[in-house]
């Protein structure tokens, strides 16, 4: 069970999640401080540590549209937020999966700030309203990366396989 800590509308761009003026900061260890920097109140709550890992951000359509900046995924991953959106922009979704940020595609989701939700593989249950919403599976092409725990371990495995087969040859 987790609480919805932020509710957003459609077309939330990467400029809102991680403003361009902080793009000189790149390391996943340093990006979390600028999450939603232009929402000073929410940013302050994140930084104060009062929002527990696993808390949920609910958004509308096309979450993460815009830039390919990976900071937008790493900044949310740094706070271990879970993003439940009606759908996601392509590059953001890939970045999220590559970095192991939890994203849930839930086209009908209805939830308000403060609601308690339970996220299951096939549905999201809003415990506050008692309503259930179907979850769409993530792109099947990405499953292997999710299973490996992200793109870095996945690529490392392939790299080692390649090196081993070279040695043999």
């Amino acid at each position: 069970m987790a609480r919805v800590v932020l509710k957003l509308g459609d077309d939330i761009s990467t400029d809102i999640i991680y403003p361009g003026r902080f793009m000189a900061t790149v390391l996943p260890t340093e990006t979390p401080q600028y999450a939603f920097a232009d929402f000073p109140e929410f940013n302050a709550r994140l930084k104060s540590g009062e929002i527990p890992p696993g808390s949920v951000v609910v958004a509308g359509k096309n979450f993460g549209c815009g830039s390919s900046r990976e900071q937008a995924a790493s900044t949310l991953k740094g706070h271990e937020l879970v993003i439940v959106a009606k759908n996601f922009a392509r590059i953001f979704l890939q970045n999220a999966i590559n970095l192991g940020l939890k994203v849930v595609v839930c086209p009908e989701i209805e939830a308000e700030e403060g609601d308690e939700v339970e996220i299951l593989p096939d549905k999201v249950i809003n415990k506050t309203t008692g309503k259930e919403f179907k979850v769409e599976p993530l792109p099947k092409a990405r499953q292997a990366i999710i299973d490996a725990g992200g793109l870095i371990p996945y690529t490392r495995k392939l790299l080692l396989e390649k090196a081993a087969s070279r040695k043999k040859a």
């Binding site: 790149v26 390919s68 990976e70 995924a73 590059i91 890939q94 970045n95 590559n98 970095l99 992200g150 793109l151 870095i152 996945y154 690529t155």
Partner: peptide
């Protein structure tokens, strides 16, 4: 097409 930095590293 555009990709993220980790994907580029791959």
């Amino acid at each position: 097409f555009g990709i993220g930095a980790t994907e580029m590293a791959s």
